[in-house]
Design a protein around this nucleic acid. Structure first.
Lengths: 211, 211, 211, 211
DNA sequence: GATGAATGAGAGTTCATTCAT
DNA sequence: GATGAATGAACTCTCATTCAT
């Protein structure tokens, strides 16, 4: 959570331009990485798809790994953004949770390719950078930690504080599996069936009437 | 399940020798892939660690990807072997399941590095080969499908047939996460705590008294 | 001697400004070339160290090699300046020579890094430019030719006219070696020892009492 | 003198082959470096001129700088070899010296381009390697140190022990200048004139009758 | 007159694969 | 069956130079 975001040096001075060009880079690279993978994508392809020359690409990044980092960070930002946007933090913990779970799975479904990209390629990041990227993942899990705590406080959710963290991780994993096990799931279940069933399982685990 | 195992052609005739050499290759490659990753490991390194020359390596495989395939297959074989060995298929479905879950998580913990290897590198396999490797994963999930069906049949497990497949996938994922989210879990939970909690969650979902 | 000084075209009109900017360039580049060498110094670094942008740099030079030329020329100018300043051209040829030799070695010592720079990097100049730079070196040797001739004329120096040129070159080389063989000399001799000994050797060669 | 020769690792095992290929590399590279300089010669050109592919080149060296090292070392070896071959170490120190000086200058003349190459490019070597290459130069100077000492011992040479090292360096420099100041010397003196004059100067400095 | 973003040819180096021995 | 030297396409990254603003 406290891991600092990596600041990539640029040879270009204008911050507005840096941001704009890096957006172009990310947009181009996401597509390439999804279709060819990080290792099989060349820096020249990234440059060309970004709309400029290889020299220009390297005015905005220092290494190919920087592109991967930018891509991962942008995807996490979008994930968190979409999720927070969809969640209404008013109401009981339980009611918030219901909506949040639904949103989480929907976001996973909508961002399927990009979530998979992070799953498959983030390991190619330099150690330090990987640590930051993983911390971004935890930040999203943290949203569910907070909802759980709110539910515990207002009595709508029943779970031992000690297991809150694990529960949040379970939530993440049982949602993300729609992405990384799609080869197993999509031929047997629709998104709706999957959503309904996973939410049922998760809510049962935290319901107050239980036990 | 019906996906055929890939048969890798070899320039060598003697099947015994092929098997022996490929075992050497796998043993060497697993270590290398775990520590350096598939892409950063060179065929030369694999040959050297296997105890023979680069020329000999290519007598037993056709491409570097073949090595990855052999590795993935060997890991799956070991996983399934260990799991089947640990499970006693006598008793009610529920009692078998309890033991099976515990075994599954223990195997994940013991084979942590190798399971992670499959998670991170199998995407580099050629499409066809990947399909087979994924089918091996499903074969393991299939063990749990069968236990669930047995429990339904003997009345010790309560779950809708339609959701059996999803339940098996959930089991796999909630066990495997000990591996691929270890950065998030290991600092908060011991293996015992994790095991106990995950089993509790999964059993609640299939208990007969429930509902 | 007759080789013409190269005139570097500039996009800027004001000669005063050109001179000022080129002084900045030389000052910055000398340091960079000494520490990193000509090839490992980038034009960007030169521009930055000069205090302006890469675009501005190219308003005052046409190529990176021009910078090297400016640097070599400035160093030669300084060498010659310091030397002429130190020599008093009154007295017998021999007495002038004694002082001149001492001054020459002192200048070599003081300008060690810069003299070495010329030795090591001037070869990277374009052929034509190199010729001019070498002619500047000869101009300095020419000072000693003149002193020798004066000594011959006034009878204080005894040397065959045919060997005057060679003698002047020997003088240059036996002084410059303090720079380009410093790795061999500095650990065995102090500047004073070196100076004394070299002067003794050179004077013996031109003494009248000899033979 | 005690600096250890750098051993360049090779991917090839056969030492005979390594030696043969490195000879090819050196032969090709010497020519290229003489005509284009080290920096303007590409590794591809070296490979092609050596008669094999770029991949093969890198089986025998680790970096382009290694080629420069091999070249410098080969040149020094040849210099020293030729010199030692030409010197007859029988007779008085003085008589040996006369012959040695003549040989030294002749070798400089014959190996002009290669000596100049070391003068101009050795600075591009990595620090450690440069140190070794310079120590090779000193080894050659050491030959003259020994001759001087022999002459002191047998009374044929008169020079203070303290100045023996400097004298040897002066010898090297006054011979090498035929190479690195050829632009100044060749148009005024023949090799014979130069040789005769330099020997005269040096012998006068160490003659017993003197003083 | 000053700026600095853009360019792209070209550099050094790697490594999966082949094939003569 | 084993060897390992040879290959060269392909990679990432650099940097002198230009030119629109």
């Amino acid at each position: 959570m406290s891991d600092k975001r990596r600041t990539i040096p640029s040879l270009v001075k204008d911050p507005k331009l840096i941001e704009k060009r890096r957006e172009q880079i990310v947009e181009a690279a996401v597509d390439l990485f999804i279709h060819k993978g990080f290792h099989k994508t060349t820096t020249r392809e990234i440059a060309r798809a970004s709309g400029f020359s290889i020299g220009t690409l390297y005015e905005y990044i220092e290494s190919k790994e920087d592109v991967l980092y930018l891509v991962c960070d942008a995807i996490h930002a979008e994930m968190e953004g979409r999720l927070r946007e969809a969640i209404n933090f008013n109401g009981t913990g339980l009611s918030i949770m219901k909506l949040a779970l639904k949103s989480l799975i929907r976001v996973m479904d909508q961002m399927s390719d990009r979530v998979l990209l992070i799953y498959q390629e983030s390991k190619s990041l330099p150690k330090e950078t990987l640590r930051y990227v993983l911390s971004r993942e935890e930040e999203i899990a943290q949203i569910f930690v907070e909802i759980l705590r709110k539910g515990i406080a207002d009595g709508s959710i029943n779970i031992d504080e000690k297991h809150v963290k694990l529960m949040a991780d379970n939530i993440m994993v049982l949602a993300e599996m729609w992405v990384f096990r799609r080869w197993a799931l999509h031929k047997h279940y629709t998104l709706e069936e999957f959503t309904e069933k996973q939410i049922a399982l998760l809510l049962r685990e935290i319901s107050v009437s239980d036990k």
